[in-house]
Amino acid sequence: MYHPIFIFIGLRYLWNSNLKKFKKFIIFLSIITITISISFLIIITAIINGVQENFKKNILSFIPHLVITNKDQYINKLEFPKNILKLNNIEKISPFIKKDIFIKSKYDITVAEIVGVNINNDKNIKNYNIKNISKILQPKKYNAIIGKELAKKLHVNIGDTIQLILLFDTTSPLTRKNIKTHTFKITSIFSTNNEVDYYQILIDQKDSKNFLNYSKNYVTGWRIWLKNPLFLEINKIKKLINPLILFDWKSKKGELFKAIQIEKYIMFFLFFLFLLVAFLNIFITFIIYTIEKQNTIAILKSQGLLDWKIILIFVTLGLITATIGSILGTVISISLILEKNFLNFLIHFFFNTNNISMIIIPYHVFFINITVILLAILSTLYPAWYSIKLKPYRILSHE
């Protein structure tokens, strides 16, 4: 006697030498559909993880996740809202000086953003990959480090001079705009392959204060970087810093992030529909089995096979089909991700894009597989319920 009996019967129904070719094809089709669906889901998830990681690394590492300031964007350091320290998601906080100005060279003029750099404390300098910054930016030397793309636009290079032009309102009754200019020498050019290369200029913090007429203890505000910038409790933070003003990274990059999220949900929805086809195959296959094997089920019931064991026969069929498909899909997808050449060729062929970053997160793979297996099991429950409702005496009375 084979134990447990429901597994033995389930395996016999799933595959045996006497099984008709059409039924073998249906089972094979169900497994292949699940395999393809899981492969695509894992690959798409890895691509989306890579896109989000690049978004955090290449964009969110250069712009602060939160900015705290007042309406004038000119605030005393003593007004720092200490309640913000209650948040567990904070990675680092630093005061900053920043201003939009005009920049002029011999050949062109454009709008740029100066950033006052404290070379001793500002941890974000490392993202710019600038060596010997303490020697390049020295107080009262009025040196500047300019972005690569901005330098191209202005047709300048290391050793050239640029003129920074500041427009500000006076306190006179006429609120007439005054202009302040100062010449800076370009001592280095940074390249981050990020949008800051197009508009940002780094100068010493003391030089920036002198140029902007900042008092000793005054700054533009505080920049905050979070451990997980994708998780923001804006309303909670606003209460902690009231009455100061809060800006978050979504105000600048929110639309781009939304586009990434929408693409992710659309891809998941499309492949979920593809996966649904696989479960419909399983469902239809088991309905056909139930109708065709009514006599067999009636005999098993008349011989004392309990209803729950009959249900487990169907569950076994669905579980094995989904498990085989899941294993094959996982192995194929991880192999393709680790060997990127083929995937990069396909992506370049269809989307004309190279070097797509892909990141495998184990619990995502586990979640996808468990979800698929559970859905496959659920697709067997109705055929199983239908089979246990059969009355053996009615079916066998004609035998």
Rank of each mutant, 00 (worst) to 15 (best):
Lys264Phe: 12
Val277Cys: 02
Ile114Glu: 03
Asn341Pro: 01
Lys24Pro: 02
Ile32Met: 13
Glu53Val: 08
Ser94Pro: 02
Val117Leu: 02
Lys140Glu: 03
His398Thr: 08
Leu232Tyr: 04
Ile237Arg: 08
Ala144Arg: 15
Trp385Ala: 00
Pro95Met: 01
Thr183Tyr: 10
Ser105Thr: 07
Thr161Glu: 15
Pro173Cys: 09
Asn178Lys: 12
Asn193Gly: 05
Ile101Glu: 03
Lys293Gly: 00
Ser251Phe: 15
Ile97Ala: 00
Ile27Phe: 04
Phe184Met: 12
Asn354Glu: 13
Ser39Thr: 04
Pro4Asn: 13
Phe28Thr: 12
Ile337Val: 02
Ile288Gln: 08
Asn369Lys: 14
Asn120Trp: 09
Thr45Met: 15
Lys141Asn: 10
Leu150Met: 11
Thr321Gly: 00
Val219Lys: 04
Ile34Trp: 08
Ile287Lys: 02
Leu60Lys: 07
Tyr199Asn: 14
His3Cys: 01
Gly318Asp: 06
Ser134Glu: 15
Phe102Pro: 01
Leu328Thr: 05
Ser333Met: 10
Lys293His: 07
Asn235Gly: 05
Thr175Asn: 13
Leu338Pro: 01
Ile282Leu: 00
Gly147Ile: 04
Trp249Gln: 02
Asn58Val: 12
Ile103Asp: 03
Gly116Ile: 11
Asn54Lys: 06
Ser357His: 09
Gly325Thr: 06
Asn49His: 02
Phe268Thr: 01
Ile84Asn: 07
Gln294Thr: 14
Leu336Trp: 10
Ile237Trp: 01
Val117Asp: 00
Ile262Phe: 11
Ile347Leu: 01
Ile337Glu: 01
Phe283Asp: 01
Trp308Val: 06
Val117Tyr: 00
